[in-house]
Every structure is written in structure tokens, then in C-alpha cells.
């Protein structure tokens, strides 16, 4: 069981969350060229080691999180709110 320290709820089992995907992808603008969209939607770094990924605390606060996790050891290095505004507020508070 991976234990994820949710910045809102505290440390919880990963079974409370759903895995989103590669968190390093920047999705292009809605009117961006097709090549950009193909790259973002279909291509993956597929990191073996530390990767930035998204998780959704679907059985908890329902916040999307950006998690730095090692895909070999499953060790978690950092967790922050995916929403930039919320992340900034949380940072200020802590």
C-alpha cells in the first residue's frame, strides 16, 4: 500500500486515490497545432525512477495532486496541490 501524504487530508492509503498519469505533461492550448496535441496525448516519457505524476484524492477531498514518486521503489518525494493557486495558499499557510 502506497501511503500518500495528501496536503489537505494527511497521509492516506493509495486506495483512496486514483492515479491520473504523467504530471509533467503540459497540455497545449485548445487551438494549438495537431503535432502538439499528438505529443501531449500519445507520447510518454515513461520514467523509470523519480517521476512527476498526478493523483486524484477521489475518496477524500477530491483534490488533484502532483506527486513526485519513484516508479521503481514507490518512494514518495513530494506532494503538492496540482492547482497552482491552491498550492500557493497552502504553502503560505505552512
Amino acid at each position: 500500500m502506497i501511503r500518500i501524504p495528501c496536503p489537505y487530508c494527511g497521509e492516506r492509503d493509495h486506495s483512496e486515490f486514483t492515479y491520473g498519469g504523467d504530471g509533467s505533461i503540459t497540455y497545449p492550448a485548445l487551438d494549438a497545432p495537431m503535432a502538439d496535441w499528438l505529443e501531449a496525448v500519445f507520447e510518454r516519457e515513461n520514467v523509470r525512477g523519480l517521476q512527476l505524476e498526478t493523483w486524484h484524492h477521489v475518496m477524500g477531498c477530491r483534490m488533484w495532486l502532483l506527486v513526485e514518486r519513484d516508479t521503481m521503489t514507490h518512494e514518495i518525494h513530494s506532494v503538492r496541490a496540482a492547482h497552482t493557486g491552491l498550492a500557493a495558499v497552502l504553502e503560505e499557510k505552512s
Binding site: M1, I2, T18, Y19, G21, Q51, R69, T71, M72, T73
Partner: peptide, 13 residues
């Protein structure tokens, strides 16, 4: 398991 992993080991859920 839904999360990406290269670890060849199982989990409980």
C-alpha cells in the same frame, strides 16, 4: 494497479 510502476511486486488492494 493503475499507478505506473516498474516494481515487480504486488500489493494488497
Amino acid at each position: 494497479d493503475w499507478y505506473k510502476s516498474y516494481a515487480q511486486r504486488g500489493n494488497l488492494p
